[in-house]
Simulated scan of single mutants.
Amino acid sequence: MNILILGYGKMGKIISQIAEERGHRIVAKINIDNLSDLARIDAAEVDVAIEFSQPESAVENITWCLERHVPVVVGTTGWMNQKAEVENSCKAKGGTVFYASNFSIGVNLFFKVNAFLARLMNEQEAYRATIEEIHHTEKKDAPSGTAITLAEGLIGNHQRYHAWQLQGEEPVSSDALPITSKRIDPAPGTHTVRYTSAIDDISIRHTAHSREGFALGAVRVAEWLPGKKGMLSMNDFLKF
């Protein structure tokens, strides 16, 4: 398969390595230093693009792919305020956009455990839920996309919470789910969902040991994506 890499930071480099090890050809590796090269790429030679850039570049990169009918796998987070715009463009152009806040199989299983636990805790009024995420200091967006997905899964299955709120920005309202974001090197990512009462705590946690799991998941999705249409997610890929 011919793969275009959009964003060649730490994740982009690992993705490229894994893709080549799996027999794929990298058409180009685009980052902020060689953006002009994107204009010279023949989209007909690209089977799929993998986008792991920066929040401020993601939508522009996705748009480039949609306009040229290139299926795109998106792992960049921090652009959800423009998600509706991307969805509308994808539908209008008959394109293919696969977005996940996290491509790790383990994390996506964790999302399901989180939603199940939220349903169990819905009637337990003595417990207050919180989310904590820890990432490396180079991660720009806070909270992480994974933490936001966890928050949405909890809120969607628990009547007490109607929104999430980042700790430290302003006083947390009683119906808001607090998220604490920490930036500590060299952590690839740790996410904890905790329910606390005066009597005890209940918590679930996912800890990533390296970025390889995320990168491999993205490449596996890229292998699966050609021929699919619309806005897709890990629920589609994993058949949850």
Rank of each mutant, 00 (worst) to 15 (best):
F237Q: 07
A44Q: 09
F214Y: 14
F98A: 06
V107N: 13
L150C: 11
A115L: 02
S173Y: 11
A118Y: 05
K13Y: 10
T190F: 02
A28C: 06
A92L: 05
G23V: 08
H209Q: 14
E212N: 12
I131S: 05
Q17R: 14
M234W: 00
A84G: 01
T63C: 05
A28K: 09
N114V: 13
A19T: 10
I41Y: 00
D200Y: 11
D47Q: 08
I179L: 08
N61A: 08
S104A: 13
A115Y: 01
L216M: 04
H209F: 04
T76G: 10
L120W: 04
D37M: 11
K228R: 15
A151I: 03
T77H: 07
Q82E: 11
A151C: 11
A92Q: 12
N88P: 00
L6K: 04
D175W: 14
V113P: 00
T146Q: 07
D185K: 05
V107R: 04
I134Y: 01
L166I: 07
P171N: 06
N34Q: 05
E56C: 10
S144E: 09
L38Q: 02
L6A: 07
P178W: 08
A218V: 08
P178V: 09
T77I: 11
N122G: 00
R220W: 00
I148D: 00
N34A: 03
I5Q: 07
E223N: 04
E133L: 02
Y161Q: 10
K182H: 11
M80E: 12
S36W: 06
D47R: 04
I14S: 15
A163W: 13
F111E: 02
D47L: 01
K112P: 00
Q165D: 06
H209C: 10
G168T: 09
D236G: 03
S89C: 03
L238R: 07
G189N: 09
A163D: 15
W164L: 03
D185P: 00
I155K: 05
L177Y: 09
I14Q: 15
I26P: 02
R205D: 12
A215F: 12
S101N: 05
T77Y: 06
F214H: 08
L120P: 00
V172M: 05
S233K: 06
F116R: 13
H24K: 03
F237W: 13
W64P: 01
L117H: 04
A142K: 10
R68T: 03
N157Q: 13
N235E: 15
G78Q: 09
G168M: 10
R194L: 10
A129W: 01
A187T: 15
S173E: 15
L109R: 12
L6H: 01
S203Q: 14
S104F: 04
S89R: 11
T196V: 13
E223Q: 14
F52K: 02
W79V: 08
R25H: 10
N157K: 13
G75K: 02
Y161M: 09
K228D: 07
G153D: 07
S197M: 06
A44C: 05
R211S: 12
R211L: 13
E169P: 02
G94E: 06
M11Y: 12
K182T: 08
C65Y: 09
V219K: 07
G9I: 15
P186H: 14
P143C: 13
R128P: 00
N102I: 02
D42C: 05
R128G: 02
V74F: 04
N88I: 08
